[in-house]
């Protein structure tokens, strides 16, 4: 289970968020570009340091400002699927997925077997030795998810994981992704600015605007609209996944 209560002064506004995500639950952070969604993920992963607050994973603090506790990213055991996936371009599919296991000194034969099984489950065994630069968008998304899940993370973070896909692939992969996240039985946080992603993949939703939580609820409530803030800007982006400006992380 993840509990986090963090604050960070960003360039244009202060970011403040308080969240809890249980095992097997998917929290969706919804908001427009620059609302601070990706920054939340980077703060949880340890790639940025909060000014104040506390982050605990399964009851163990990985960040606590009062006591000066701050685990580096490599010690948090958090799986992170980056926007555009960040697959290592100089490595093959196998080496990308094996990377986290090698860092954990897992024996070679076990790595081999685990990756074989993962690739088979994802239906991408045929690209095992391909350079990741030769893969399609859907294949890269699967490899990125496999790389993040194979380390058996205590928390899974996904930053706009469907953005790089074409619309047909996106509809299919949304459902697949939901199943994979539930199967992993770990808390997951998905960042998106698509209502459709939130409705299909999420269990609960937090809407962010300029670093502040403006709405919390269940995905189905987005449809009913009761007490939900204006969704027009998101609806527009949902349909087209247009041009994302780089989200300011600091």
């Amino acid at each position: 289970m993840l509990t986090a209560r963090i604050e960070k002064q960003l360039r244009d506004y202060p970011l403040m968020i308080d969240l809890t995500v249980n095992r097997g639950e998917v929290l969706v952070l919804l908001g427009t570009n620059g609302s601070g969604k990706s920054t939340v993920l980077n703060l949880l992963a340890g790639l940025l340091t909060p000014d104040k607050g506390e982050i605990s994973l399964n009851g163990i603090p990985i960040f606590r400002s009062e006591e000066g506790i701050s685990c580096p990213p490599e010690e948090r055991n958090i799986g992170y699927v980056f926007q555009d996936y960040a697959l290592f371009p100089h490595m093959t599919v196998f080496d990308n997925i094996a990377y986290g296991l090698k860092m954990r000194k897992v024996p070679k034969e076990i790595i081999e077997n685990q990756i074989q099984a993962t690739l088979h489950d994802l239906g991408i065994s045929h690209v095992r030795n391909e350079r990741v630069t030769n893969l399609s968008g859907g294949q890269r998304q699967r490899v990125a998810l496999a790389r993040a899940l194979i380390i058996q993370p205590h928390l899974l973070l996904l930053d706009e994981p469907l953005t790089a896909l074409d619309p047909q692939a996106r509809d299919k992969i949304r459902i697949e992704l939901r199943e994979q996240l539930i199967t992993s039985n770990q808390p997951s946080i998905l960042v998106t600015h698509s209502i459709k992603d939130a409705q299909i993949i999420g269990d609960k939703v937090i809407m962010l605007e300029k670093g502040s939580v403006i709405w919390t609820g269940r995905p189905e409530e987005l449809e009913s609209g009761s007490g939900v803030p204006d969704l027009e800007p998101l609806k527009c982006e949902c349909d087209e996944y247009r041009d994302f400006g780089a989200i300011a992380i600091d």
Partner: peptide, 22 residues
């Protein structure tokens, strides 16, 4: 791109290993 270094760190690599391997 720094995102590759970030990915390496979240996968369990120290800054030095990230520098060497990525």
């Amino acid at each position: 791109d720094q995102v590759y270094e970030s990915a390496s760190r979240t996968l369990g690599a120290s800054p030095l290993i990230t520098f060497v391997k990525v």
